[in-house]
């Protein structure tokens, strides 16, 4: 099993009621699997906030895997058995000028 630490920042943390959680995912684990697990835990509204459609992330979602920003749902988690930290943050529509 792949052990993945999830950090939900800002609004996502407020929605979920927690900032930090641990997931155990079957290997090989991909980012998509982690997001599926989050949906299972927090419901479809949570998923709607992070996914445009089943194939695409919301444009205002930022995901970092071990500090590197990723946009590909097929990103592999826990490479070479190293601990993986996945950070998610929404940067939702705010005002411009």
């Amino acid at each position: 099993m792949a052990l993945v630490t999830i950090k939900l920042f800002g609004m996502l943390g407020a929605m979920a009621g927690t900032r930090d959680l641990q997931l155990e995912l079957a290997e090989p684990a991909h980012l998509r699997d982690a997001l599926d697990a989050l949906e299972a835990r927090f419901g479809p509204e949570f998923r709607q906030r992070i996914m445009r459609n089943p194939r695409a992330l919301q444009t205002y979602l930022r995901i970092f895997v071990n500090e590197t920003e990723v946009t590909d749902l097929d990103t592999v988690l826990q490479i070479n058995g190293l601990p993986t930290e996945v950070s998610l943050m929404l940067l939702p529509a705010a005002e411009g000028g």
Binding site: F9, G10, M11, M89, P92, A93, A94, E95, G96, G97
Partner: peptide, 11 residues
């Protein structure tokens, strides 16, 4: 705002 969890911001 993003850290706090509000989207209510404007100029």
């Amino acid at each position: 705002c993003h850290a706090f969890g509000t989207m209510n911001q404007w100029v």
